[in-house]
Design a binder for these strands. Structure first.
Lengths: 136, 136
DNA sequence: TATAATCCTAGTATTCAGATAGGAATACTG
DNA sequence: CAGTATTCCTATCTGAATACTAGGATTATA
């Protein structure tokens, strides 16, 4: 139903990163899941993705866990979203020219691309620090 | 997978309205569907919603059809989206305070509300005319 | 009366988000 | 070396929603 819906994947990922930003030293998936009320096994997968994309660094074995690769101020929300869901694309049209075949030129395409741009700019202009800082 | 996904409902609705904007006199659902390559019966439902919301006016019976209630320049895309999908809401959090229960205050809420605002502003600032005018 | 249109209600099919489950590999610790 | 706590990998399930499809009732025109 919604035009844009933020998946639990992104919400959980963001909250997990926010939790890690408030900690020095690694935190395990179980710890984060407990603190944030997120299903543990589900969160594991999300943290794995964030690790694969380079936003997190993981240490295996006892006393292991996850920690941020960068200071919170250097992590844009766009990078988080893209790590978890790939590139943002409102419509097939927006994939590029030739991607749709209505009329001669798909007029709405420019419009949807503009929306994508607006969203991208918002997400790129905010960092993890902005998200967790009540005074921003 | 996408952060924001424009449903076919909205895409079809927008294209149908764009078609009507380029015509004087009513067009039937069948005509629009044929011109735009949209499943006819499916489009009927969409046009019905747009009519119920006041964006279109319909005439039944032979030679009937749909026409815009207002000039294209006075129809914001936001009104179209809301007619077809209701209010935009990125997360449960964004519904208002108390809608989520993580931590003491849900820190990401402000962030998601900001995203909603950015999207709303974009959609409110564009009219149907902007969508169909190649020079805008 | 025939026709062409909107309007109304119900059903289906497929996809996907959101998990859940079980275990293998890895690394500390006593 | 044994135990334990962790990440990592793969597979499976499920409920809900989107995207249609179907059939017909109602209404207006010619």
């Amino acid at each position: 139903m919604p035009l844009f819906q933020v998946s639990t994947r992104i919400q959980y990922g963001l909250r997990a990163l926010a939790y890690l930003a408030g900690k020095d030293g690694p935190a395990s998936a179980t710890e984060i899941a407990g603190a944030e009320g997120i299903p543990g096994k589900y969160l594991e997968g999300i943290l794995g993705q964030l690790t694969a994309s380079g936003l997190l660094r993981s240490e295996r074995g006892k006393n292991g866990g996850y920690r941020l690769s960068l200071p919170a101020a250097e992590v844009t929300v766009l990078s988080i979203v893209e790590a978890l869901e790939g590139e943002i694309r409102p419509t097939e049209c927006a994939a590029g020219p030739g991607a749709c075949d209505h009329d001669l030129a798909c007029l709405p395409r420019r419009f949807w691309l503009g929306l994508k741009t607006a969203v991208d700019e918002y997400l790129r202009s905010r960092t993890l620090l902005d998200v967790i800082d009540p005074a921003s």
